[in-house]
Design a protein around this nucleic acid. Structure first.
Length: 284
DNA sequence: ATTATTTGACCCAA
DNA sequence: TTGGGTCAAATAAT
């Protein structure tokens, strides 16, 4: 279920990067505070990636070790077994996890998706609370889409956003269409995305990718035939940011209940992602 | 007046 | 029993 080889390589190079950045940071420390801060941020991101990679290599062991919360695997201790998520009425069978750098600008970019906060909880072992949002149209259109937003422990500028369910109201499709017509403005800060798909006992977690917000949608390709879920990203700005992943859940026990098409909701999601987080991150 | 947020209470699965 | 998710009354914002 887990490809130790490729993930292990990624982990190794990630940790090597951490080491290099740490040394560079040391050299910078009493000269240039701006560069040092930037390095700290990169360092924290890298550590965070390493943790995720390590989790995907050794899910059980690391979870038992009690690492910080706020990660998809941590919220899903049953990964690898049946019922990786709490099955609630009307809950869609796909969970998408997204991390994004905080974007602080007053411009209220409206992607057409409306969320309403309905709760906030302190999470055991996490520095920051987790906020719970539901679709504004839950009652009028019985749309059961929800999401959870939580600031990561490692890097305060990064947020974990977990989407549960899909929009059955019309706004998701409308937002995707709007994003296609008028792509968001490019920002200086890259956005980091992480994709996590869960389906019954099957789980696959992607590598992290970093792409420019103004361009990332260009890399999205629909999945090829014969693969249950497939996405490919290429950042024009950075060849290191190339990402592609194919998921085949057709074999073994993972094949149960395959009545869901991953492609459409996820593509819609990525087409309008950068604006999602404007309001949600403010109070976290 | 209407709509959104806050926050303690409640529910439920582990 | 505990922790996470949701509810709903009070409060704030528009």
């Amino acid at each position: 279920m887990v490809e130790l080889c490729s993930e292990g390589h990624a982990l190794t190079s990630e940790l090597a990067q951490v080491l290099a950045m740490a040394r560079e940071l040391e050299a910078h420390m009493d000269q240039d505070s701006v560069a040092a801060r930037e390095l700290c941020r990169a360092l924290a991101s890298s550590v965070d990636r390493s943790i995720r990679l390590a989790r995907s290599c050794f899910p059980q062991e690391l979870h038992a070790a009690g690492s910080p919360r706020g990660y998809g695997a941590a919220t899903n201790p049953a990964a690898g077994r049946d019922a990786g998520f709490k099955k609630r009425k009307g809950m869609a069978k796909v969970r998408t996890q997204v991390r994004v750098t905080s974007v602080q600008d007053g411009g209220a970019l409206d992607d057409g998706l409306n969320w309403r906060k309905y709760g906030q909880k302190d999470i055991l072992g996490a520095k920051y609370p987790r906020a719970y949002f539901r679709c504004t149209h839950r009652h009028t259109q019985s749309c059961n889409a929800t999401k959870q937003v939580q600031r990561t422990d490692g890097d305060p500028l990064l947020f974990d956003v977990v989407y549960l369910g899909e929009h059955t109201c019309g706004q998701a499709a409308a937002a995707a269409a709007a994003a296609k017509r008028a792509p968001p403005l490019a920002r200086a800060e890259p956005v980091q995305l992480q994709l996590q798909l869960e389906h019954a006992g099957w789980e696959q977690q992607s590598s992290l990718l970093a792409v420019e917000t103004g361009e990332f949608h260009q890399g999205i390709e629909p999945m090829p035939a014969g693969v249950d879920s497939y996405f490919s990203f290429v950042s024009p700005a950075n060849s290191d940011c190339q990402f592609s992943s194919g998921f085949s859940a057709g074999s073994g026990s993972a094949g149960v209940d395959m009545d869901y098409d991953y492609a459409a909701p996820l593509e819609d999601f990525f087409l309008s992602t950068p604006e999602f987080f404007q309001s949600e991150i403010q109070n976290l």
